[in-house]
Write a protein that binds this DNA or RNA. Sequence first.
DNA 1: GGGGTGACGCGTC
DNA 2: CGACGCGCCACCC
Length: 113
Amino acid sequence: MADNSFSRIYEVVRQIPRGTVATYGQVAALAGNRRWARVVGYALHANPDPEGIPCYRVVNRFGEVSSAFAFGGGNRQIELLEADGIPCPGGRVDLSTYQWKRAVLGYVPDGAK
DNA sequence: GGGGTGACGCGTC
DNA sequence: CGACGCGCCACCC
């Protein structure tokens, strides 16, 4: 399955609990390397399973939805987030309240080696 | 195998 | 979080 980083990233995104969001950098960190931030974006861009991979719960470090969101419009992502109970005033979510803090509290940056 | 691109992140101005 | 640049890694041609 996890033959490559892509599958790994999908696994992480798929584990994002409902009513919560995660950042690209966070997903990258949970996937193994925070430097995969760009790869995460690329992986979600490839999104082979939009029904199983809630890519709309993945936002940038500012908590804002991506401009290139391919679900038919960035506005579409906001509706999905609100459906999860996540208000997005200005197309942005409050990371302080809704960011997936599962492992962020314990993960160690690659540079901390 | 080389080169270009990108749904990012962080430092710096 | 205003803008600009560099770095970092994987994918496509």
